[in-house]
Amino acid sequence: MRVKPKTTELIAKILIWSAAIFVLAVLSFIIIYILYRGLPMISWSFLTEIPRNMGRDGGIASPIVGTIMVTAVAIALAVPLGIGTAFYLAEYTKESGITRVIRFSAESLAGIPSIVYGLFGFIFFVIYLNLGWSVLAGGLTLAVMILPTVIRTSEEAIRAVPQSYREVSFSLGGTKWQTIIKAVFPSAIQGISNGIILGVGRCVAETAAIMLTAGGALRMATSLFSPTRTMAVHFYILAREGISMSNAYGTAALLIILIFIINVVSNALVNRFMAKNR
């Protein structure tokens, strides 16, 4: 017997709706559960005290500082490199052999697993450049990791700048450099900052690459050469070694809140960008 199109239609609709509802349900479950167990842990002292007793007691102040420092190093390096690459790809050259190689490299970097970044960062920054397990080694490793994200979002933002802006700037006697700095860059800045924020998000969430390059020290990092751990690494060690489930939940809840904030900021930027370009 042939199934009536109406019946197939109905079944398909039910399947698709249930897939969507299922995904939303799983996501909400993960988030709500972590927040439910973790939020009660978050207090002023949790945020400001240094972990004691391997992390069993005390707060997570040093992992928070470690996260900020490592992320700052990564952004400080990846942003100029990424934006420069994007401007080169979008403004200075036609599609050619060289752009294909650059694009291929960036896309390949985007696909490399974080554990391989960890291996590379360990052997190159920690051992070969002799930086040791440190904020600097971790941050440099993350910089390479987020470079493709910054390149891609910046290039899209630069290409979205209307060609007429460039023509106006040239027609008013602008050089290429002046046109890029004064007419193109200000118009692309929102899209570019969105890319930077996405990069920050990846840095905050990363574990494997940092574990192998920044070490796992619980002490407060005092310089770029101090070993440190980030919140994600701290969470992993607490949970895996079963040191303190409650502190693990607290750290995870804080991470999720951070990621949530980063996403909200990023979406707000994108929406403003879209509204302006309409």
Partner: peptide, 24 residues
């Protein structure tokens, strides 16, 4: 100069990929 600076920056991803490949 600005063109070559941008080109140099654009080589960052190529050299990063090369370094990763070589060192691994």
């Amino acid at each position: 100069i600005s063109k070559y600076i941008f080109l140099a920056l654009a080589f960052s991803s190529i050299s990063a990929l090369a370094l990763i490949t070589i060192f691994i």
